[in-house]
Amino acid sequence: MSKTLNLYRNGFYAMATRFFVLIPELEDGSGDELFQKIKDEVNRIESRLSRFIKESEISKINREAFKADVETDDECFEILSACKYGWKMTDGAFDITLRPLMDYWKNEDNQPDETLQAVKESVGMQHVELDEENQTVGFKNENTELDLGGFGKGYALEKIKQMIESSAIKDAFISFGESSVLAMGEHPAGGAWKIGINDYTNPGNSIHEFEVSNGSVSTSSNFFLNDEGVLQNHTHIINPKTGKPHENFTAASVSARSPILAEILSTACLLLSDEKIRELMEKYDDIEIIKVDYEPEKPEVSEFKSIGE
């Protein structure tokens, strides 16, 4: 006989996607309290980082940082510093300034011409100056615009991870739009949580499995399947090197203890060469990366694993 479990499940919308939490062995009252804290924290982060919200810090920086340096608080400065670090570490493959290029390619009439060249030159974290002493951010190019869409979910999960670590709860499973998953403690049946990566050619089946305990898996791809299994070409990943959308059917997933690191690396690894990925792996002892190439008839999976702890 399997034992009856209390399983707390709840979800909400945030950051343009859905957030789901599953916590074993938690009765509803305590679950609702923790859920409210998590929801408040996610909303707080969204209200600070979203470029869609006029009053957010990021909107303020986007409006003002070219005219004059904008003073930020500790949290905001740390976030921008982490983004700049991620940009350097990945040779510019992770870049939060690509929005003008995405907008350029949203217009289907636009072609790779001189206009594109101008837009391309306006993007890049080299235009974003962070002054540690005064804790200010300034733009060196008029068209620079920050978009933390590829960072916010990882950051939110990082904060939630800390929240759970300092609570009495050991085991939890959280999916933030499925592209960012946080797995804490153990599966109720024992052992680490087994996070599968959905196979787009065979939906509902895993093309790879990560075993995660107190860590995160982040996935990036330039296309996805909706719940009904229908292919949606919903977003363009921009290759900052070429200034053009990354059109190959590829996906990259990264498992790391830190949700922020997983988030940064998954975006970057979609564009980085295998050699550069191997180079990156050397810096860390806890990451595992897969790249899936859907171009051949049978998808090809490349695995990269850091060498032991």
Binding site: S2, K3, L5, L7, R9, F12, Y13, A14, M15, A16, T17, R18, L22, P24, N43, E46, S47, S50, F52, I53, K153, S175, G177, E178, S179, S180, V181, H187, P188, A189, G190, G191, W193, K194, I195, G196, I197, N198, D199, P203, G204, N205, S206, E209, F210, V217, T219, S220, S221, N222, F223, F224, L225, N226, D227, Q232, H234, T235, A251, S253
Partner: peptide, 28 residues
């Protein structure tokens, strides 16, 4: 959830690109 109820630790195919809400604006 089904696996947990059956006390089985199986891999679930959850990882993928971000699921997107139609016409999202702010704070859910």
């Amino acid at each position: 959830v089904e696996c947990i109820e059956q006390n089985k630790n199986e891999a679930i195919p959850i990882g993928g690109a971000t699921w997107v809400l139609n016409s999202p604006v702010r704070m859910g």
